[in-house]
Amino acid sequence: MNGADVLCDVLLANDVTVCFANPGTSEMHFVAALDRKPKMRCVLGLFEGVVTGAADGYARMTDRPAATLLHTGPGLANGLANMHNARRAFSPMINIVGDHASYHLPLDAPLTSDIESLATPMSNWVGRVKGPADIVPAAEAAFRASLTPPGVATM
């Protein structure tokens, strides 16, 4: 079991059963984990604005958070308008934002971004997973933050 499987398991244990996704290469481990979890419904969106809008709509209809999977900082930026709407509507949403491997970040690749600074204005809670030991506490904190008060949590 890898970190992506652990993340899926934490979401499922908290009854988060839908993930709206626009993955890129850095998120392939999580996509594979979604495929291994039959209780997790993954809905592909071809643009991050669609993904965050769908998660907001799902939350408004069910009063439950959906997860989103966004490709790095630029993907997160593409979804910010609907994250804003979700935050203002108190819609629970858990955003999972992919990033480069930690050893690759100092190389400042084209998609390297300050994810925390992008997410903070539209999120009630922002957290970064720095290693395997951070996954469970961060995912549980994101779930709690999405519900109390309802709003956007980004990890």
Rank of each mutant, 00 (worst) to 15 (best):
M1P: 13
N2W: 07
N2F: 12
G3M: 13
A4T: 02
A4Y: 04
A4C: 07
D5V: 03
V6I: 15
C8Q: 00
A13M: 01
A13G: 03
N14Q: 04
D15L: 08
C19Q: 04
C19I: 14
C19F: 00
A21L: 02
P23I: 06
G24P: 00
T25D: 13
T25M: 04
M28F: 11
H29D: 15
L34N: 06
D35R: 14
R36I: 00
R36L: 01
P38R: 01
P38T: 05
P38Q: 08
K39H: 14
M40C: 03
R41L: 14
C42R: 15
L44P: 01
F47S: 13
G49N: 14
G49T: 06
G49K: 07
V50W: 14
V51F: 07
T52M: 14
A54W: 12
D56F: 05
P65Q: 10
P65R: 01
P65Y: 10
T68K: 02
L69F: 15
L69N: 09
L70G: 03
L70M: 11
L70T: 03
L70H: 00
H71E: 08
G73T: 13
P74L: 04
P74Q: 06
A77C: 10
L80K: 06
L80R: 01
M83I: 08
M83V: 07
M83N: 11
A86T: 04
R88M: 14
R88T: 09
S91Q: 05
S91D: 02
I94A: 02
N95D: 10
N95S: 11
N95C: 14
I96Q: 01
V97A: 05
V97R: 02
H100K: 01
A101Q: 05
H104E: 13
P106N: 03
P110C: 04
L111D: 13
D114M: 04
I115M: 05
E116D: 14
A119W: 03
A119N: 06
A119Y: 00
S123T: 05
N124P: 03
W125K: 05
V126F: 10
V126R: 06
K130A: 10
K130Q: 15
G131M: 07
I135Q: 01
I135W: 08
I135A: 04
P137T: 02
E140M: 06
E140I: 00
R144L: 11
T148W: 04
G151W: 13
A153G: 09
T154E: 01
